[in-house]
């Protein structure tokens, strides 16, 4: 049997800037069942513009690992349906995005929820479960 060399090769990492937003369908799923499949599907994803995806060699529905020194999550990629100027990707506000938010607050009590700097790379790992995002 041949050795799967691919699994030893790390996918290239790209710098990514992420901001968070709200989505009514995800909020609806949260109200109903925050531990349910719908909430997970609508939260554990990142929306990226077409041009940025091409630059990074990422396709719609690819699975990616997003990580920085504060944490890491595995989520699915969704191609943005809009014309994006690029440079910023979007995650709906959720425990998945919160896993990547910095603890630097300057003593002012408000974290940088809207500006996450991280690395993104393709992965075959399972989507991060909500259970594993607990303390």
């Amino acid at each position: 049997m041949g050795m799967d060399i691919g699994k030893f090769l790390k996918s290239p990492e790209h710098e990514i800037k992420i901001t968070t937003y709200r989505d009514i369908f995800q909020i609806e799923a949260l109200e109903r069942d925050r531990f349910g499949e719908d909430y997970r599907k609508l939260s554990a994803c990142i929306v990226i513009g077409k041009n940025d995806m091409q630059k990074m060699g990422i396709k719609d529905r690819d699975r990616v690992l997003i990580s920085n020194k504060y944490g890491s999550v595995v989520v699915d990629v969704k191609e943005s349906k809009k014309e994006e100027p690029g440079g910023v990707a979007f995650m709906v506000n959720s425990p998945w995005s919160n896993a990547l938010v910095s603890d630097v607050t300057g003593g002012k009590g408000i974290p940088e929820f809207k500006e996450i700097i991280a690395k993104i790379s393709l992965t075959k790992e399972e989507i991060t479960s909500i259970e594993s995002l607990r303390v």
Binding site: S94, P95, N98, A99, V101, P111, L133, R134, V135
Partner: peptide
């Protein structure tokens, strides 16, 4: 636990 950064809630 859901709405704050994980880096803060440990």
């Amino acid at each position: 636990v859901s709405s704050l950064p994980r880096s803060i809630i440990s």
